[in-house]
Structures are given as C-alpha cells and as structure tokens.
C-alpha cells in the first residue's frame, strides 16, 4: 500500500489522532502556563527558591521522555495509564522553558524603569501589570512557543502509555515495519509543530509593545 493510499484510507483516524494529539498538548500547555508564569514571576523576588525550582525543572528536562512517562504510571492521582499521566509529563517538560523565560524576561526589566515606577507611587500590582509584564511579554511568549514545540514532539511518546495521539501511528508503524504508517504520524506532528510555531509567532508580534 503506498503512502498516499494509506493517507486516503486512514484519513478519519489521522484526523482523530491529530485532534487527540492537539488536545493532549493544549491541556499540558494550559497547566504549564498556569503554573509556570506565576511561579516564574515569584522567582524574581526569591533567589533562594529560584535555585531549587530552576534546578528541579532542569533535572526534569534531562529525564528521557519514555522514562518519565514510565515513572509517572505508579504515582497516585497523577499517574496511571492514559491521557492524564501524559498530560502531567508533558506539562513537566513544558515548565522549564516557560519558567526560565518568565524569570529572565521579568528580571531583565531595566532597574531604572522599576525605580521610577516605584518612586512615583505605583503599587506592586500596577508595576507587574503595566510595566513588568508588558516589557517581558515577548520573552515569555518565546518560552511558551519553545514549550509548545517540545510538547508536540514528546506527545508522540504518549501513545506508549495508552494516551493516544499521533504516536499511535509511529509505534504501530515500527511494529509493522511500515514507513507509510510511521509517516502518517510523523508528518501531521511536524505540520502541527510548524503551524503552532507560526501562530504563536504572530501572537508574539501582536502583543509586543
């Protein structure tokens, strides 16, 4: 069966696996953004916490993805077989670039700007909302972008723990020794990554002051 025939015959499954993949990544990214950005902001004022948190996030990043999925399976509440475990693992991978960039972006705001903001009577909240976030939004979004691309790639491994997604084709293709089947997973994953990269690039451009 040629690749094109395969594509046509399996278009329904390719579509549903792509959707599964996307939902997995979106859920993980949502968790990572909701934790990573506030935590990154908090780290700016807490140098002690910073060492530990960035250190831990770095260590997680070095764990091979298949191993991380494996580790998580026996963990109560978060673990088990399926999409929930995969979401947790992906969120952990996405955390480092988001944390790192949020911290770097906020810490990089010109101290003279902060001094005048504080000296003129802005509250900490106003400074965060009107000064620090607008001035670091490009750097933060760049982190989100990197995290999303990483997630889309690593999410293909999620099929190994029964979380579905485009990885299903890749594992099946390897088992069947069929390039067509592997490509049916790999090509949509690559397109997804490119699409998300372009989209977030546009958002980044739009939000940059």
């Amino acid at each position: 069966m040629s690749f094109w025939n395969f594509l046509i015959n399996y278009r329904a499954e390719i579509f549903s696996r792509t959707l599964e993949h996307l939902i997995l990544v979106a859920a993980a990214m949502l968790v990572a953004v909701l934790i990573g950005i506030p935590l990154g902001i908090a780290l700016v004022r807490r140098p002690n916490l910073r060492r530990w948190v960035l250190g831990a996030a770095n260590v997680i990043q070095t764990i091979p993805s298949l191993a991380l999925f494996g580790f998580l399976i026996p963990v109560p509440f978060l673990g088990g077989i399926g999409a929930r475990t995969a979401t947790v693992a992906l969120a952990l991978y996405a955390l480092l670039p988001i944390l790192q960039n949020t911290y770097t972006g906020i810490a990089g705001v010109d101290p003279a700007v902060l001094e005048s903001a504080r000296g003129m009577g802005m509250t900490s909240r106003q400074i965060l909302r009107d000064v620090q976030l607008p001035l670091s939004i490009a750097v933060i979004l760049a982190g989100v972008r990197v995290a999303a691309i990483i997630c889309i790639g690593i999410a293909t491994i999620a099929a190994a723990i029964g979380a579905g997604g485009l990885g299903v084709f890749i594992f099946r293709g390897v088992a069947m020794v069929s390039n067509s089947v592997i490509l049916a997973g790999a090509i949509p994953a690559a397109l997804l990554a490119i699409g998300v990269d372009i989209l977030l690039g546009l958002v980044e451009k739009k939000l940059t002051p």
């Binding site: 010109d110 700007v113 005048s116 003129m120």
Partner: peptide
C-alpha cells in the same frame, strides 16, 4: 522623583 537614568517607560 527624577533619577539620572530617567527610567521612562519604554513601551
């Protein structure tokens, strides 16, 4: 409050 580095909001 006026400082040497001015500290205008660049955005």
């Amino acid at each position: 409050y006026v400082i040497q580095d001015v500290g205008l909001f660049p955005h």
